[in-house]
Design a protein around this nucleic acid. Sequence first.
DNA 1: AATGTTAATGACCGACCAGTCAGTCACAAT
DNA 2: ATTGTGACTGACTGGTCGGTCATTAACATT
Lengths: 206, 206
Amino acid sequence: MAERKREKRDPQQRRAEILAAAFACFSERGFAATRMEDVAARAGIAKGTVYLHFPDKEALFTELVSGIATPILGQIDGLAANEAIPPRFAISMFYTLFKREVLETERRHLLRLILAEGPMFPAVTEFYHREIISKGLGVLRILLARAATRGDLRNPAIAEVPQIVIAPALLSIVWTTLFEAYEHLDTQNLFDAFLETLFVPEGGAK
Amino acid sequence: MAERKREKRDPQQRRAEILAAAFACFSERGFAATRMEDVAARAGIAKGTVYLHFPDKEALFTELVSGIATPILGQIDGLAANEAIPPRFAISMFYTLFKREVLETERRHLLRLILAEGPMFPAVTEFYHREIISKGLGVLRILLARAATRGDLRNPAIAEVPQIVIAPALLSIVWTTLFEAYEHLDTQNLFDAFLETLFVPEGGAK
DNA sequence: AATGTTAATGACCGACCAGTCAGTCACAAT
DNA sequence: ATTGTGACTGACTGGTCGGTCATTAACATT
């Protein structure tokens, strides 16, 4: 039954398969509860093979969470570059991007993983702060400052606390991965209502 | 050295000591990484003794997280009861209460625990949604509706998404327990700026 | 003082699992 | 066909830890 034949692979491809399997396992069971054998089985290989590609469980985990994040980076700071884009539109795009690329994909589990396992892996937390949070806040700071000078913000003071923009995104992640089963949250509505609260209504800007 | 003598105790007190020790251990290392022996040692007793008070590790954990939350409940819905209290003030008090009773105490670790271990313990998640989140949202819904009819809200539509009010609180928990070491977040400022954004400025109300 | 009662102890058991490594097999080179 | 290479395998090891229980100590009763 399901006789698994030995099969050589391109190392890159094998690596990717292991990472994909590891992602699935870690996502649904957490770091501690995931067994290396589970990962191997999911990747369709033997346990020992995993160790040909990653030194140990922790390395597999950290490489995984670091690797998945990087691709998103490019998209983010593209938003601040073009000064012609109205700040409100840019932040709206930020939410849309977040929704489409994270919240509604398997990547949302990655974020939960970082929230959950972060304290156990300071290196991962530090990496995320440096590469994602810090850069994201930088972009938001620019956008909010621009919005403030244009008179687009109902409360210009929030330009000093760009974390506020992240708050609904964080909430949506936590809600959908914890409470969605008990009570639905309309994230689109959440983001829309929040944007409408931050920015003065249409026609209010000069 | 430190010869530990046998010592009988009032069962209630012993229980409380074990729960306190368990809270400390689970908070700082998570469920999986905490050993029952750690808990026992921290409580100053032998491992077997823990099992005289709790059937197993999981029961200890769930009882712990359920038990600590309950006391906060009373304070919360006191805020909605009195109609004379202006909604803005009530929500401001909500943040103050949250800051003083959760964010700046050891209880903040409890919240992180639920975020982190929640998916592993559906019973706990369900309990929290039912007893805390759901009730809290109910109160917020009332307060926001009241504020909307008084014309206090810059964007009345948020009365339909009370989760928005929770978002900054959630962010503050996650930030302080994950990123505070790398970048400070002034939570008072966060809450103040957010309140100022939600509500029309002084004198704007009727 | 002797006896009974019960909380407390910690050595022990067995399940579990990260990581290893001697051996195997697919494929390439000759 | 034969041989060499190294990716792959999975039984095994060493250690860990949740949970048990025979024993012991503290206290109560007589």
